[in-house]
Design a protein around this nucleic acid. Sequence first.
DNA 1: TGCTGGATTATC
DNA 2: ATAATCCAGCAA
Length: 184
Amino acid sequence: MSKPLKRSFFERSTLEVAPELLGKRIILRKNKKKQRTGVIVEVEAYTSNDPACHAARGKTPRNKVMFGQGGVTYVYFIYGMYYCLNFVTEKKDIPGAVLIRALEVNEEDTRIASGPGKLCNYLNITKEHNEIDCCNIGSPLIVTNNNYRDNNFSIVQTSRIGISKAAHLPWRWYIKNNPGVSKL
DNA sequence: TGCTGGATTATC
DNA sequence: ATAATCCAGCAA
C-alpha cells in the first residue's frame, strides 16, 4: 500500500508544487482490488491574482474548494463534456491549484491520457471526485512518490494552453520527450 | 431569466 | 477550422 503525499507537500506556493508533481503517481481506487494509475507528465499552475484562475474573482460555489486546505481535489466540468482534475495548493484561505494535463499510462495507446479531459475519462473521474482529501490513507484518490525513471528527467517550462487571459505566463511544465504530453 | 464564454477534443 | 454540448457566472 503506497503512502499518499503529505499535506505539507501541497500547502506551499503553487508555482513550487506544480513542477514537483511531475513524475509522481496518481492512484485511483475503484474498490478493494481494482485501481487505475498513471504518472503525471504535464501540469499547469493557477494562482490567486491570476486572471486565468477560476478563483480570481472571489469565492463561488464551484471554486470554493480552492480556498480550503491543500491536497484536496478540485474537479470541474468544462465545454459540456469534459472534466478536469486539479490538486488544491497553498494553505487555507489562499486559493490555488495545479491542473493535471497528462499522464503516462501502462496501456497500448500511450496517448489515451494525453490531455486534461482525456485523463479524467481514462480514470473515470467525474464531479463525484470533487473535494476529495488525497492526504488520508485509504482515500480513493492519492498521489504518491515513485522512482519514475529514477527521477532523472528533463522538465520543460512554457506557457499555458487553452486560456485567453494571462496567456503569456510560463506556468506549464512537462516532462521532455514524453509521448504522453498533450501538445508540444 | 437569459446570455456568453469556457483550464477540451475529435474530426473536417 | 469547427462542431459538440452544458453550465457557471454575471447582468438585469
